[in-house]
Simulated scan of single mutants.
Amino acid sequence: MSVLAVTKKDFKGARRSKTLWAAAVLLGLIAVLLGFTARGYRLSATETVQNQFRMLTQLLSVLLPLIALAVTYMAIAGEREGGGIKFLLSTPNTRRDVFVGKLLSRLGIVAAGVVFVYIAAVSISLTKHGVFPAGVILGTLLLTIVYGSVFVSIAVAVSAAAATRSRAIGSSLTSYFVLVILYVFPLIGVKSLARGVHTAVLGMDPNPDLYNAVQYTSPFLAYRKSINLVVPDGLEQRLFRDSFANADRGAATGADTVGGAGPGAGHVDPDLPLYLTDEFSLVILAFWLVVPLLVGYWAFNRADLE
């Protein structure tokens, strides 16, 4: 075997998963429903469709990581627990072949699922509105595939480092909670925690940009910010509005710069530090795409597979 042979074998096995097909169909139906209900007050057909796909990315920002982790977490851990890893490494394959082959297979599966969802959404938007804003649709599609790939990378790393199913499940759920859920339902606000340590524990003056930077390490927020790069003005998701730059400008103009991330509401044109800009989101996504794989491959190479 080779990397290609491992990839083909794993892809054929994974695509038979009923859970995978159920998730793809469910997301497709949600995309169709979103297309049917998408409308905007005094918006043109093109603007309505652009808003539809922005809303779709908000939905996928929460659901896609969970699906990517569920599809991938047993990729290598399952082979180790079931004894199949010995067969894979006796054909002969190197550990690198197995690791890369599993990675490519699961990347292909998640990318195919995202494309399926987009085909469903595009079909409805064309049928209902007759427009195809290529920049927004193709741009968000590419960024969504990258976002899904980030969590495939994390799950492959987790699977490579875990010797059992239970450890792989636990690590995957922990990853989802820490990287996504804490930002969707901020019961324990990451920003508040960072502020508390910085001011109460270390006794330093408040620094909103520092707390925002701590938050921005999440691929969830990086994906949301990256969408701003491909949507038109007025549809951006406004984050970090309490930054020093926005606060100063808001004070000068009398604008409200305190609050959440609603698109366009109370918007003050930001002059953010480089590490808080929309463009920097690509650096953060690249980090989460590469670094977990390096750590996972290192752990896999050191593991006792006997």
Rank of each mutant, 00 (worst) to 15 (best):
T57N: 14
T57R: 14
Q58H: 11
L59I: 11
S61E: 12
S61Y: 12
V62D: 00
L64Y: 12
P65R: 07
L66F: 15
I67G: 01
A68F: 10
L69N: 05
L69P: 00
L69H: 04
V71Y: 03
V71T: 13
V71M: 14
T72F: 07
Y73D: 01
Y73R: 08
Y73G: 01
R80T: 14
E81D: 08
G82R: 11
G82A: 07
G83F: 12
G83Y: 15
I85E: 05
F87E: 06
F87S: 10
L88A: 12
L89Y: 07
S90V: 00
S90M: 05
P92R: 15
T94M: 09
V98M: 01
V98T: 13
V98H: 03
V100G: 02
L104G: 08
S105R: 09
S105K: 11
L107A: 10
G108D: 12
A112V: 10
A112T: 12
A112I: 09
A112R: 13
G113D: 13
V114W: 03
V114Y: 01
V115R: 08
V115H: 07
F116W: 15
V117Y: 06
Y118W: 14
Y118S: 08
A120T: 09
A121P: 09
A121I: 07
A121Q: 10
I124Q: 12
I124R: 12
L126P: 00
H129F: 15
P133V: 05
P133L: 09
P133Y: 11
A134M: 04
G135E: 04
V136K: 07
V136I: 09
V136G: 07
V136Y: 09
I137D: 10
T140Y: 07
T140L: 13
L141G: 01
L141W: 08
L141A: 06
L142D: 00
L143I: 13
T144Q: 05
T144F: 06
T144I: 05
T144G: 03
V146K: 09
G148K: 03
S153H: 04
S153D: 04
S153I: 02
S153A: 14
V156P: 09
V156A: 07
A157T: 01
A157V: 02
V158S: 05
V158L: 15
S159I: 05
A160I: 02
A161F: 05
A163N: 05
A163L: 01
A163C: 04
R165S: 11
R165K: 14
R167H: 10
R167Y: 05
R167G: 08
A168M: 12
G170Y: 09
G170A: 00
S171F: 15
S172V: 09
S172H: 13
S172P: 09
